[in-house]
Design a protein around this nucleic acid. Sequence first.
DNA 1: TAATTCGTAACATATATTGTTACATGAAGC
DNA 2: GCTTCATGTAACAATATATGTTACGAATTA
Lengths: 147, 147
Amino acid sequence: MKRDSRLSSVLHALLHMAEHDGPMTSETLGQCLGTNPVVVRRTMGLLRDAGLVTAERGHAGGWRISADLATVSLRRLHEALGEPAIFAIGNRNENPECLVEQSVNAALEGTFAEAETLLLKRFADVTLADLAKDFARRHAERRAVKE
Amino acid sequence: MKRDSRLSSVLHALLHMAEHDGPMTSETLGQCLGTNPVVVRRTMGLLRDAGLVTAERGHAGGWRISADLATVSLRRLHEALGEPAIFAIGNRNENPECLVEQSVNAALEGTFAEAETLLLKRFADVTLADLAKDFARRHAERRAVKE
DNA sequence: TAATTCGTAACATATATTGTTACATGAAGC
DNA sequence: GCTTCATGTAACAATATATGTTACGAATTA
């Protein structure tokens, strides 16, 4: 299974937008992400529907963040993307009659649910502002190395 | 992406084998799992390579568990299957030059690594013997309801 | 010798993500 | 008003992975 990289993509895009004055076009963002402008529109459109970004058409148009960076957590972005499946491993049959399979499902589901809860909790604790800060730190470090 | 259900499958198969006297053929296991005998051989072959089961050919042949149920954890089975990817979500670029993307990757990787650690820890705590016990409980419960 | 069963390669199918093309819609500048 | 730029979306293609299927070889037992 190919892994869903949209959360990674929108984070990348949003941070570039945060560092940039004025709106950024799908074309530009597509170059940043190494993908097609249409893919950018498709994905960013979900964030627009969630009220996190706005899009303007025509000259000098593009995408703009419309929320406070400190209030946008990874969890919220994950939700905006439609809460895609987190795990690449799962049960063979979701509602089996076989009692053996029911035991297997119960064991796996419980474990996965616990891991998912932890993951979403961590996602809720990390905001775009946190990532922007981390980026600024890396940026400063690289400049220090160069000098 | 389609989810990998092999861990679920081998657990199902192993528990049926544990409840059954003598070896079970790929044909029979395939019927239990609702799949093809070749798929069973392919997957059980990985467990054979890990020393968890043995296969005998010819008349009265089939698959047999060759390990103590109490020593076979979900973790060990996961390893026997080649430690397939656990998450359906991931980074777009694994080794980006872009500092922004590096920050994004670092944040996601840290979070996913923590969830994976928890999951594998739980996997290590659950053995086939535990699942067999759980199945026995369900079995007894259903009989009680019937009476 | 025939029947059974695993071992494995090769190929087909199903599903999901991502990429691409095409065209409509709306906004800004000339 | 017309052109240009940009998003909005549908439709389709490409890609990746898991699973399913067919075919045949090898080993074991009746």
